[in-house]
Write a protein that binds this DNA or RNA. Structure first.
Length: 206
DNA sequence: ACACGGATACTA
DNA sequence: AGTATCCGTGTC
């Protein structure tokens, strides 16, 4: 299935990933990440700005800046963290500020048995409640780095969360004050429950 | 609380 | 070459 076949069929087209990166990160909450034989609703994301964000790979890594230059919006940025966990991000570039959006948690919707097999755990809540968990559950690895999420095979279907909260990002040491973590309110599927900085995410975030 | 373990970008 | 750092998970 090509990009043209996906328009108006529920799949997020490239245009979705050409918004401002914060709008995109928030808008992804409630959408469904579909990967081969498995899928899950995105309930948590984090936004990283390509420019001026000390917590973004582009701040220190030439390879990350080259990745942004080289690829179109909607390309997967997959990398190994702490030597053992693959993390998947989506490149956002085009009309607004450029960014890389980390997918941090899913509510499993399809292919749960496969997820259990790849994860080695049974509890539904443990399958995708973290960025490293969800890649393992879906079978995402470094081989998927630079894969186009707007082209075929894998991708994201449109959807919407009932309510979205914005909170401080997790696990970082720099630029910790930025409220660039987005999660579905009241969702039991997130990696970490909203903290004291969480607010309802309105239309006027900056 | 801590162990686990690899890529990247520094220093030299 | 060696070192510091890193968007985490599982088990203790």
């Amino acid at each position: 299935m090509g990009e043209a076949d996906r328009s108006s069929s529920g799949w997020l087209g490239r245009g979705f990933f050409e918004q401002d990166f914060l709008e995109c990160a928030r808008g992804l909450v409630g959408c469904e990440l579909c990967w081969e034989d498995a899928a899950g609703r995105i309930v948590e994301t984090e936004a990283y700005a390509v420019e001026g964000d000390a917590a973004c790979h582009t701040f220190t890594r030439r390879s990350a800046r080259e990745f942004v230059e080289r690829n179109p919006a909607g390309t997967a940025y997959v990398y190994l963290n702490y030597g053992m966990h693959w993390l998947i991000n989506v490149l956002v570039k085009g009309r607004g500020r450029q960014g890389i959006v980390l997918i941090r948690a899913l509510e499993p919707t399809r292919g749960l048995d496969g997820m259990r097999g790849r994860r080695g755990v049974e509890a539904e809540r443990a399958l995708c409640s973290g960025p490293g968990k969800l890649t393992q559950a879906l079978g995402i690895t470094g081989a998927d780095h630079e894969r186009d999420l707007c082209g075929g095979g894998v991708g994201i279907r449109s959807g919407r969360a009932a309510a979205v909260l914005e909170d401080r990002r997790i696990g970082i040491s720099r630029a910790v004050e930025l409220p660039w973590r987005f999660l579905e309110a009241k969702s039991p599927w997130v990696s970490v429950k909203p903290g004291p900085w969480a607010r309802v995410s309105g239309l006027a975030i900056s």
